[in-house]
Simulated scan of single mutants.
Amino acid sequence: MHMRAVATASTALMGATVLFLPTSPAQASNASDNPLVVAHRGASAYAPENTLAAVDKAAKMGFRWVENDVQRTKDGELVVLHDASLARTTNVEEVFPGRAPWNVRDFTAAEVARLDAGSWFDSRYAGARVPTLKQYMNRVSHNHQKLVLEIKNPALYPGIERETLKVLSNEGWLSPAHLKNSLVVQSFSADTVRTVHQLRPGVKTAFLGTPAVTDLSEYAAFADQINASYTTISRGYVAAIQAFNGPHGKPMEILTWTVDDADNARRVAGYGVDGIITNKPDVVRAATES
Rank of each mutant, 00 (worst) to 15 (best):
A117M: 00
G98W: 06
L81V: 06
F63H: 14
A100D: 07
V70A: 02
G127A: 06
D75R: 12
P131E: 11
N34Y: 09
K74D: 00
G118D: 00
R41Q: 14
Y125S: 00
Q135E: 15
T132Y: 04
T90Q: 04
V38E: 10
V112A: 07
G42H: 02
L115D: 06
T73R: 04
A54V: 09
T89S: 14
S141H: 11
A110H: 14
W65P: 07
F96Y: 15
E111Y: 04
F96L: 14
T108L: 05
R72K: 05
S119W: 03
E111N: 04
A117F: 08
P97L: 13
D69E: 12
V95P: 01
F107W: 01
A47V: 07
S123R: 12
L147T: 07
K57N: 04
V79W: 01
D116N: 05
V148T: 09
K152E: 07
F121H: 06
V104I: 08
H144V: 13
A126L: 02
V112H: 04
A58M: 13
P35E: 04
D75I: 08
R139Q: 13
E111F: 02
K60S: 13
E150W: 08
L149F: 14
A84N: 12
A59P: 04
M137W: 12
G98K: 14
G118P: 06
M61T: 07
H142P: 02
A53N: 04
S119A: 15
V79C: 05
N138K: 13
A128G: 04
P97T: 14
R41F: 15
G118C: 05
V92M: 07
